[in-house]
Design a binder for these strands. Structure first.
Length: 734
DNA sequence: AGCACGCCGACT
DNA sequence: GTCGGCGTGCTC
């Protein structure tokens, strides 16, 4: 009897054993349909075995092999296994969350590849065929024998039942999906590389056949993308596939278009969570077959099954969105490095402000730093950064006289300005001046933010809305204080909506456009705004960090930064790193073409080292200081961290669950520091009270050893129905 | 996570 | 008399 160990989508740290009909030819990586309790589930075979510890009366027979997808490779399974161990999550959960949801269903996926090719078995079958009257199947095989591959649509013209016949041939293993495109590829290489780009590219291409991690360090406009493109060209030329990870869904269409233009005719696949279920499954399968040569996607794409992966690029590698914040809390950037290492291929981590972890790895010689020190376009110098001392400035609506004057100049010159304020809505809180009531969210430990809707209505007519930015709770803004009845409710602080009003009143003639996730939510709105900006129909842009990322505005010559100081005061030790990256990125929007950019940062702390580094465009100085501080404080990257979090209906219950968990912690943990349970900084979210225990160790190995014992025990812990726990390795949220 | 089994309150 | 409340236990 053959036993298969199957990964199922249950949060249990074990696999499930099933018996198989030996004639089914089940392989590791295959999708299978199995009975599970009272229902049927799709699982993935992780391993085959002769025997099992499970009593034989409990072993049930699998119901079927799902042959619409090829088995996942050993390499892929090994990556999932690594992810499971490193992030302390059940293998079944890892595999099932990496799989496109459509493939978790048993109904076969319609085979609709771009083209078909004969397999060796198909050739044999054709040679052995003797029937006098050729069947449709045989006609199809004949047709395929004359070309390396034939497009699906052409084969469909050979008979009304061609689709079914092709499916049958595919099921019999006589044909395989293929690409009709030539195996050679074209690369449009019209720009000459700078000396720095050339040497970076040389370093990468010199190790196309072995593992190396490169940090491609260069400011906005220094030509990182061009280096990626050339490296991908070499990868494709070697007959391999390239995987490109980007932080946000918004960036994928833009980048896919750019890649498509540079690699005409090369099949490029896009993977992100907004795709239709079938499309995502299709891309997954085409990536696996090798039909797609380039895969572009968000963090989930790190699990794309690529048979001939030859290069991984992680763009904006410092971006926090590479870390999954629920379920399997993996870092796609870190998994990309691990995957490259196991495949013995290069990985390129690109950023103007590398994550401190990445920078430390480069300093330690584990990664190789490749610098692109200058902007490539002639005359496009780095913007001039000036700190505007708000202790000395006259301000109106939060805009200093200095900044107002600079905006006025841009309007007069028909250039564009961008005012960066990383806070959506009208005001961060509504408060009662009489009794001290504030607009708190009932479900979260946070204020409800004042919004106005609809955004374009005249001020008198629009009605206020209170919205929680954490859980989405919405309520109409009260007209008088819910606590004391006072009618003078005051919106405190400033968000982008309020700034929009202020700018419009300061510059009545200016055409103002606010861009944040509220104004870009509707489909196509971003494209329309983009067109207006490009046409010069906008004078002043107001935006959150959504504007800071990867967009090039040729007419933009001024960036004003408002209210950055808040992040300077944050308790989170990563806040300065994030602030620096954000400011550097938004500053990079200024003056990309032949116009020199200017950046004005309004601050009450112009002497702060972070701002001083920003003025000098000195990431390395900033990073060196941060690294020193982190090392002295014993924070990452000098230490490895994990947290066990608990969520419950009351803070007491959450803390009690953690104390219970601590009882199960291994007693002997010399190199590991275990902290007391404390509420999280956002202590209540969507009605869940949250607390955590921090685990730290200077040794990654010691931390992992400790966690694997501890977490295994936690699965046996008795947990109340209205409480839950999870573990987060390398957490970003405290 | 589901889902079934199982033992106690207000209702057609 | 029973429909259903969610505690507890199991899933190869």
């Amino acid at each position: 009897m053959t036993i298969a160990r199957v990964a199922l989508d249950v949060p249990l740290p074990r696999l499930f054993d099933y018996s198989f009909d030996p004639t089914w030819n089940v392989e590791p990586g295959a999708r299978v349909l199995v009975p599970f309790g009272p229902r049927r589930r799709v699982g993935v075979v992780v391993a085959l075995a002769r025997e099992t510890d499970i009593p034989s009366d409990k072993i049930r027979a699998a119901l079927g092999l799902l042959a619409d997808t090829a088995p996942l490779s050993r390499e892929w399974l090994a990556l999932a296994e690594f992810c499971s161990q490193y992030y302390q999550r059940p293998l079944g959960e890892v595999i099932q969350s990496a799989l496109p949801p459509r493939l978790k269903r048993a109904e076969p996926l319609r085979a609709a590849p771009s083209a078909w090719t004969l397999t060796a078995a198909g050739r044999d079958a054709l040679a052995a065929a003797t029937a006098a009257r050729p069947s449709l199947k045989r006609t199809l095989l004949w047709h395929l024998a004359y070309a390396d591959a034939c497009p699906h649509e052409i084969l469909m013209t050979l008979g009304t039942r061609a689709a079914a016949a092709l499916r049958a041939l595919h099921g019999e293993g006589l044909i395989a999906s293929a690409t009709a495109l030539p195996t050679t590829h074209r690369f449009v290489d019209e720009r000459t590389l700078s000396a720095a780009q050339t040497s970076a590219l040389a370093a990468i291409t010199a190790s196309l056949d072995r593992f190396a991690a490169f940090v491609l360090f260069g400011v906005t406009g220094s030509g990182k993308t061009e280096v990626y493109l050339h490296a991908i060209d070499r990868t494709l030329a070697a007959g391999k596939q390239a995987l490109v990870l980007v932080p946000e869904i918004n960036l994928t269409p833009q980048l896919a278009a750019e890649f498509g233009a540079r690699f005409p005719g090369v099949p490029i696949g896009v993977l992100h969570s907004n795709l239709a279920a079938n499309e995502r499954a299709r891309t997954w399968i085409d990536a696996q077959s090798g039909n797609l040569r380039i895969i572009l996607g968000t963090r989930m794409a790190v699990f794309a099954p690529l048979a001939r992966l030859g290069l991984i690029v992680v763009d904006e590698e410092h971006d926090a969105s590479f870390k999954q914040q629920d379920g399997v809390r993996y870092s796609a950037r870190d998994l990309a490095v691990v995957r490259a290492q196991r495949l013995a291929i290069p990985v390129v981590l690109g950023s103007a402000t590398p994550a401190l972890e990445t920078y430390a790895n480069a300093q330690a010689g584990r990664y190789r730093l490749l610098s692109l020190p200058e902007r490539v376009r002639a005359g496009a110098a780095l913007p001039r950064v000036e700190l505007v001392d708000m202790r000395k400035e006259i301000e109106m609506h939060g805009i200093s006289a200095r900044l107002a004057e600079a905006v006025r100049e841009r309007i007069a010159r028909q250039e564009q300005s961008l005012l960066f304020l990383n806070r959506r809505g009208y005001a961060p809180v509504l408060a009662c001046g009489a009794c001290g009531w504030v607009s708190d969210c009932s479900r979260c430990a946070a204020h409800l933010v004042v919004h106005y809707a609809p955004a374009r209505a005249p001020r008198g007519a629009r009605h206020g809305l209170l919205r929680c930015h954490h859980c989405g709770l919405e309520a109409p803004a009260p007209r008088h204080c819910p606590s004391c009845g006072n009618v003078d409710l005051v919106p405190f602080g400033r968000g982008t909506q309020r700034l929009e009003d202020a700018v419009q009143s300061l510059f009545p003639e200016a055409r103002v456009l606010r861009i944040d996730s509220d104004t870009t939510r509707a489909r196509g709105s971003w494209d329309r705004m983009r067109a207006d900006i490009d046409a010069g129909a906008v004078d002043v842009l107001i935006g959150t960090q959504i504007l800071a990322k990867g967009h090039d505005f040729p007419r933009l010559t001024l960036v004003g930064v408002l209210n950055a100081d808040a992040a300077l005061m944050a308790a989170d030790y990563r806040a300065p790193e994030r602030l620096f990256a954000q400011l550097q990125q938004v500053a990079g929007r200024a003056g990309r073409a032949d116009l020199r950019g200017e950046v004005l940062v309004q601050t009450r702390y112009p002497e702060a080292a972070l701002y001083q580094s920003l003025v000098r465009h000195d990431y390395e100085g900033f990073a060196a200081r941060q690294l020193q501080e982190r090392t002295e404080a014993g924070f990452p990257p000098a230490a490895a961290e994990a947290v066990v979090r608990a969520e419950a209906r009351t803070p007491q219950a959450a803390l009690a669950l953690l104390r219970q968990a601590l009882q199960l912690a291994p007693a002997d943990h010399a190199e590991v520091t275990l902290f007391d349970p404390v509420p999280m900084s956002l202590s209540r979210l969507s009605g869940w009270e949250r607390a955590h225990v921090l685990v730290q160790s200077p040794s990654r190995r010691a931390l992992q050893a400790f966690l694997s014992v501890w977490i295994a025990r936690l699965y046996d812990m008795r947990v109340a129905a209205d409480a839950r726990w999870h573990v987060d390795v390398d957490p970003l949220e405290f």
